[in-house]
Design a protein around this nucleic acid. Sequence first.
DNA 1: CCGTTTTGGTGGGGTGTCAAGCAAAAGCCT
DNA 2: AGGCTTTTGCTTGACACCCCACCAAAACGG
Lengths: 383, 383
Amino acid sequence: MLQLIRDGTAVTRADLARRTGLARSTVAQRVDALLAHKLVYEAGGSESTGGRPPTVLAFNHEAGVVLVADLGATHSRLAIADLASEPLAEVTQDLDIALGPEAVLDWVQDQFATLLRKIKRSVADVRGIGIGVPGPVAFGTGQPISPPIMPGWDGFSLPNWFATRYDVPVLVDNDVNLMALGEHWTNWRGIEHLLFVKVGTGIGSGIVAGGHIHRGAQGAAGDIGHIRLHQHEDVICRCGNIGCLEAVAGGRALAIRLTDAGIEASTSRDVADLVRAGNPTATQMVREAGRALGEVLAECVNFLNPSVIVIGGDLGQVHEQLLAGIREVTFRRSLPLATGELQTVASQLGDRAGVIGGAIMLIEHILSPAAIDAQIQQAGAAA
Amino acid sequence: MLQLIRDGTAVTRADLARRTGLARSTVAQRVDALLAHKLVYEAGGSESTGGRPPTVLAFNHEAGVVLVADLGATHSRLAIADLASEPLAEVTQDLDIALGPEAVLDWVQDQFATLLRKIKRSVADVRGIGIGVPGPVAFGTGQPISPPIMPGWDGFSLPNWFATRYDVPVLVDNDVNLMALGEHWTNWRGIEHLLFVKVGTGIGSGIVAGGHIHRGAQGAAGDIGHIRLHQHEDVICRCGNIGCLEAVAGGRALAIRLTDAGIEASTSRDVADLVRAGNPTATQMVREAGRALGEVLAECVNFLNPSVIVIGGDLGQVHEQLLAGIREVTFRRSLPLATGELQTVASQLGDRAGVIGGAIMLIEHILSPAAIDAQIQQAGAAA
DNA sequence: CCGTTTTGGTGGGGTGTCAAGCAAAAGCCT
DNA sequence: AGGCTTTTGCTTGACACCCCACCAAAACGG
């Protein structure tokens, strides 16, 4: 209940009373409960303003840790984060998700244990597990649904798999949704509507509408990679259609075209590296990809009317070129009203957006007012 | 609080206790408060199931009325509805919204008074006013924002205008949003994500995401009329761009093309009439418009992943032809996952969707738990 | 006609919140 | 330095709300 106040911007007991409108005595009682649960601690007094100096309360971000895995198509990143979503330990590795759930999750579980030892925390400190996967997910049950690039994962229940190893909540979501959540929570908290676009090997987007992730009916929302572009009827996409955005502006497509032009590149990161190194062909190509992306985003802006567009993913890291192309086309093709207040920016979390978003998803779940109430109830009943 | 239970599916005091999990005594107390406020009434007993027969409670939809105006570009519809959003009296008239707010609202106010007399209700029975306008609206303040087809309305505060005449809440929204709300609440209550598409003179859409209307940052969400189509580079839209959906598949565009072909038609309703009369050229044209619309909707489906698409507006009334074209293209261009459970249907409320949606918007506002609490508090304080 | 069942209504007990008052810890003034 | 003021933290009694238990009423069934 008072949890959010403590997370964010306040404060001391008296401040809490003023902000919430509750009586000071009530606040004191609630704070005591949180102190007893070690969710907050007293961080010493601060300077007085003429009277008794207040006791500053601080959220105890060391009260537990969350395990997060951002599983990509060919590359994965694991992290342990504290309750402030600050990564305490990380590991990344090339890993083909097509190996199937058992093989991948065995490795994940192994690495989690290693990371826990590294930061000298025990399994008892783990408060939850968050997994991001590169495909649609039924969020309620934590099962991937018909993911095109994850053979063997369809309908596999990740919470069930982890249930035998940890007794904590397990949340699974699409990786782009997690990135969107991470950026939104970290840098755009007050913004209601945000669109996060990941430009990596493929292209996908995560939608924040009304302050919450919009997942759609089948968890397939945000799939903009296969929207058809104009004047690209010659490009055939792996989905079978022609002129798809992903087949024109995706990292894989760019790498192939660079290779055709005699420049070695096989992944989206290679393309990004070439741009960073100043390769003119790659730079030109990324800028052109930005224009293609801009055409699609213009439609999304008209449709969704967000306040902010955040560009991330491997190619989002080379933001100058991509953003220039996007802004150029978006402003030309969208309605003035929708673009008037629109900001188009690069991801600030970079390649850690996924794991940070995963941590946030879990922390928000664990520290929701309802969950806190349940914890306190439970402890009270036990005593 | 128990309000929704009464609105929807329950019932009797004992049922309420079972459904809410509250004690029977608590339920009785709350019901008494609602009875005192005449928001519910006892509708006599029903048959017993072996014991004392229960007293059936019913929502008193005659406890007040709401005034609703669905202002179109050239045509307006006013209605008075009871608290079940059932229209009690209606009037429609051709009215150019470009006459400006004072002229239009004077007429609206005049008609409201006439309708009230007609159903023998007084101003004291009015619980709220809902207005739908054909353009973006800042919902919080009830002001149209830069509406392209409403000269003189930009920033005009409708709540302020009505405040001198009625002392009730005044809510203003985009007309398509109201239609979407009406269809959602009436026929698709349990559905979380719905897309309503109005095909009339122009083309617009209303988004229901997570059960609520998504208005976007500037109230401009759902504007799909100016998304660019493929292979229509020859068409110039009034917005200045080329190949806009509205310029290809909108009612005005079809009317112009029919006229060019020697068939008299000036409005979208003329086109719909021709189709209903079996005119082959018009039928063919509407079906082709459906295909164009399908191209755009395929992208929207991929992006938003709704469960239902509802087609309304003047041309939505001739649904067979339009739907056939839409379904044909949507299923071809969207991802299988997103279309697997997707239903595409015609509006069931027809041209009354706007006023019914407006009534629902108001009723939901007036009968929200918070509002009910406030009413009871207020009455308690007065006594 | 009496027990059973289901419902509606009433009173006692418990929990949580509010309001008021008191103690503590500073700053400020003389 | 000492008293006053201010601000904060904490305790106590009162009130409101909700639950539990009991009782009355109204039907059905044997």
